[in-house]
Amino acid sequence: MIVTSPELKDALKEIINIGVGKAAGMLNDLLNNHITLEVPHVDVISFSDIDNSLGVMRTTPVSAVRLSFRGPINGVSSLVFPPDSASKLVDVLIGEESFSDDLDALKIGTLSEVGNIILNAVMAAFGNLLETRLTYSIPAYVEGSIASVLHLEMERSAPVLSATTRFTVESYRVEGEIILLFEIGSFDYLKHAVDAALSA
């Protein structure tokens, strides 16, 4: 179990909200579609507990965009959707209905771009807190079980920051999950930076 204070969770939620707010502006400009992004819930858990925290996504295939980040903090960030949510979001954005459970190349490209914008904006918000620029890998689109999507060489006690992300597009509401997996030591570094900012 990862011990965190309510103040730390509130601060992490605010940082993520700053990132998704910027991402929403970029997506609105890029897709010419009014998108509202909210982060109603943030939790910090250990990697070994992640299955129990993701509800229905534990037992259904998911769609995800994933990129690793390096710098003072290291790990992997993912934007994860149940398949029906992924299809619904992409259908609304590109104005087509999906008649197949498989996302075609256009839809994979759209979801990858959405994930890339959101994850980069969120990690940039953390970079601003740390007063440094994080480096990122090229985003990768993956599908499968949550275990396979998040299968990484992580310690079972490694911290995971999970943030529910709510998309509202043209009155349609879709929820996904921003999941940040931290290498051992990286979350402690982030926590110290947040504590320092709170006490400044």
Rank of each mutant, 00 (worst) to 15 (best):
V76E: 10
I45Y: 03
V90A: 00
M123R: 06
A124M: 08
L129F: 07
L106E: 09
A86Y: 09
R66P: 01
G127V: 02
V80N: 11
G115L: 06
V142P: 02
F126L: 10
A124C: 02
I94Y: 13
G71I: 14
R133A: 07
V122K: 03
E97I: 13
N33Q: 07
A124T: 08
N33S: 10
A64W: 14
S137Y: 01
I118F: 05
G109E: 03
T110M: 04
I73S: 09
N33F: 01
T132D: 08
D84L: 04
I73P: 04
L54A: 03
A121G: 02
M123F: 13
L67C: 04
G144I: 11
V56I: 13
F99N: 12
S112R: 08
P82A: 08
D43I: 08
L134Y: 10
G55A: 00
L37H: 05
S78P: 05
V142A: 15
I108A: 12
L111A: 07
T110G: 12
M123H: 06
T110D: 12
Y141F: 15
L119I: 14
L89Q: 05
S98K: 15
S100V: 04
A64M: 15
Y136R: 08
I94P: 13
F81Y: 06
S112G: 10
E143L: 01
L103S: 11
V90Q: 10
L119D: 12
G75N: 06
P139T: 06
L54K: 00
D91A: 03
I138C: 02
V90D: 02
V80E: 10
V42G: 14
Y141A: 09
G109W: 01
N32L: 14
P82E: 09
I108K: 14
H41R: 10
E143D: 00
V62S: 02
A105L: 13
S53T: 11
L67T: 12
P40S: 06
G95D: 06
G95W: 04
T60A: 05
G144Y: 11
A64R: 10
S87N: 12
V142L: 15
V62E: 01
F69D: 14
L67S: 05
G55L: 00
T36W: 00
D101K: 13
N128H: 06
F47H: 08
L79P: 13
T36H: 03
L106A: 11
P83T: 07
P82R: 03
E97A: 11
N33E: 10
H34T: 05
D104Y: 13
A64N: 02
M57C: 03
A86K: 01
T110P: 02
A124I: 09
Y136C: 02
G95F: 02
F69C: 06
I35Q: 14
F81V: 00
L111T: 06
L106Y: 13
I94S: 11
L130A: 09
L54D: 00
F99H: 12
A140G: 14
G95L: 09
L130F: 03
K107T: 03
N74I: 15
